[in-house]
Design a protein around this nucleic acid. Structure first.
Lengths: 154, 154
DNA sequence: ACAATCCCTACCGGAATGATCGGAAATCCC
DNA sequence: GGGATTTCCGATCATTCCGGTAGGGATTGT
């Protein structure tokens, strides 16, 4: 856990999303160089290796990375970084983008008692679409080629 | 807690945001009719009254509602619903919109060790701006005048 | 053989979530 | 003034989630 003690904040992305995204960007930077050991990524980004294993497992099950065992093994991206979006990564790590259960991506299963006089639903629907669009419009390739802090870096 | 058991989902809004937003929309609908008791809102929306008290306390401290004690008392919006945004409500209930500690609204205090070679920061910055813009562009008045479910209601 | 590496499962302490409860203070009506 | 109503305030509590740690098994290169 990097950074300050955090009070309540809205729309905070957990370390699963944060660390996992860092790993993916690092793999994107080294795309085409064969497999990269998780240890080297963990050390390079100063993150706990054992914890990363869990996150990478989710990424592998989602078909985003492939692992190779044994000495000299490691992980690599399955697809070209230009064809993997931040949305793909976030969904693999944290599940579908779903501000409320009634506004899930794809099919909505829930039958909400607040319908049909629900005044808040349109808000969550809009929010879901907005977030998904923002995440899906940014690729790993774009993130990987922007390694340096711009503007007033925090 | 309305709805189904929820597996892991990204960007999920807690009941603070959900219930609190419902209360605000209800108060917006009855704007200009004097104070509304929390009990009537709780019964109308089928929400736990005692829990709502806590949420409304946050809304009051944020200057969004005012309470009047005693028989016939209740709450009412301080400002016209057309001048209160969903963003105001969410921030009052769940804190600033902050995907990561390094991408807080306003001033960023954190000095992150990942800078300046952080490839993920631009993602969270974009996300923060996108979410804030979506929430700030929708007013309580708009939400209140759309009480009926549209499209395929969940 | 042996070291490196992925892979899998279980566990664990602390914090957040989603409430409930009891009571104090103000206000209205009779 | 008495009582009903309602906001306000703080404590408590059960459950779940978060952010890891620990240990071991399977596979591969040298």
């Amino acid at each position: 856990m990097i950074g300050n003690p955090l009070q309540a904040t809205a729309f905070h992305v957990s370390t699963r999303g944060e660390y996992g995204m860092r790993v993916m960007v690092e793999l994107a930077r080294r795309y085409g160089q064969g497999t990269i050991s998780l240890r080297s990524v963990a050390e390079g980004e100063a993150l706990p290796e054992a914890y990363l294993e869990q996150l990478v497992a989710s990424l592998r099950r989602a078909g985003l990375v492939s692992g190779k065992r044994g000495a000299g093994g490691g992980y690599q991206l399955v697809k070209d970084p230009a064809h993997v979006t931040a949305g793909d990564v976030v969904r693999a790590l944290e599940g579908p983008i779903e501000p409320q259960v009634c506004t899930a991506e794809g099919e909505s299963i829930v039958n909400c008692p607040h319908e049909p006089k629900c005044g808040t639903r349109q808000l969550w629907v809009k929010l879901q679409a907005t977030i998904a669009d923002a995440l899906d419009s940014l690729t790993l390739a774009e993130l990987a080629r922007w390694p340096v802090g711009h503007g007033k870096a925090g």
